[in-house]
Design a binder for these strands. Structure first.
Lengths: 225, 225
DNA sequence: GCATTTATTTATGTATGCATTAAATAATAC
DNA sequence: GTATTATTTAATGCATACATAAATAAATGC
């Protein structure tokens, strides 16, 4: 993709997007410090938009402004993961329950269904990255259908952080067949308007995902990501 | 309070605090627009810290930056309240459950106990503002004891918004005796390490508070705050 | 040689200036 | 009188300059 010639959007937004990319790709590693001026040179803009982006990313919990020390990319510990999963579990389950209560039509639920299909297909092809992407899609679509914009934005923030950890553990765990079945069960509960069933299944699913991830982090001694 | 002479903290932080104050007091009403330059004059600083503060408050959901139109103070609708209470109910209940599991000593729980005492005393004196303050204190202390910093920060953000609505409805409702009893029951459950009881009672409490508030907003035709 | 003070460096926080561009107004055509 | 275009206005987004204060290095006293 070209981006030098095309002056796409505001520098501020570009800074947010590019810094996020650098953080998720690991180029700006968790725990590392970076001066505002260095980042400004790196992204070829002045300190002002860098600063605004840093403030925004700080609010999203991806980094921290430390006066005189630059911005510190936040490392995620297993305990952070526990915290994050706790929030995800609670809020996504509410979203699942709401989605079931809202009586969506089959076409409204097409996004969920196709996400599950994609997960199945990716799994058959041993395409774990593709599976992860489809899984993300299922979760974000589920939350969207829950119809609570606050939940949507909090969850999407936290899901970002999980994504960082999962990229490290994706190839350590066994294939997530169970996950796909859980999702199908949640979808069925939503179809049937069974709010409490959707809640319980999704809650159990997330709780399971949490302990799987925490076990992996523990077993591989990953104390910081 | 004096604040002109003492150059307390960074202008940026001062801007955040003062703008919050102006929003919560209603001086910057929900739905109103304000140019960055006007706010800069008003708070006696340049546009830069105002801008940074506006970005931070935007991330907290209190206002919105609308290019060329200034910052718009976000109005809260009854549906926003529903969303917010849904999040508060889910997360605070998890916090209550966690607090019960963490086996706190009586001295650890002193904050909760004294908050309840203060609520009782305020209610006897018909001091509703004092009651509300003590109630806030109970909730924030409960969440703190839950030991999940993500929950703490999300809840405190949302609680801010509720506070805006409650200041309008505080004197419309009957005296909240039930509330105090609920809190005592939650505290007892935490003392006894009964996580699921703490969860259920607090969940019911918040659900009740939500419908009380939404009823009031509806009955008084408060469509935007 | 160590401690304490002083000087120097440097990153931030804030102010300011300016180009850009959206909005508003005026002007022109029809 | 309406629609379209041109002009002006003005708020933002960004770059830049600078004062402040922290951190480091140098210098002085003992």
């Amino acid at each position: 993709m070209e981006n030098d010639t095309v002056k796409s959007r505001s520098s501020s937004h570009r800074a947010i997007e590019e810094l996020r990319e650098l953080i998720f790709s690991g180029e700006l590693a968790g725990g590392s410090d970076h001066l505002e001026s260095e980042l400004a040179v790196r992204l070829n803009m002045s300190r002002t938009p860098i600063r605004e982006a840093a403030l925004a990313l700080e609010a999203q919990g991806l980094l921290e402004l430390r006066p005189r020390k630059g911005v510190r990319i936040l490392a995620i510990s297993p305990d952070d993961m526990r915290e994050i999963y706790e929030v995800l579990t609670a809020l996504e389950s509410v979203a699942a329950s709401n989605a079931a209560q809202l009586g969506y039509s089959e076409s409204d639920l097409a996004g969920l269904a196709s996400a599950i299909d994609n997960m199945d297909q990716a799994l058959e092809k041993d395409d774990l990255r593709g599976w992860a992407e489809a899984d993300d899609h299922f979760h974000s679509e589920l939350v969207r259908l829950g119809g609570n914009t606050r939940i949507t934005s909090v969850v999407s923030m936290m899901a970002d952080q999980v994504r960082r950890a999962r990229s490290m553990t994706l190839f350590m765990r066994e294939k997530p067949h169970k996950s796909n079945q859980d999702h199908r069960d949640v979808l069925d509960a939503i179809r049937g308007g069974q709010a409490d069933v959707a809640y319980r299944i999704h809650h159990a699913h997330r709780t399971q995902a949490q302990s799987t991830l925490l076990d992996l982090l523990d077993r591989h001694q990953l104390r910081s990501i």
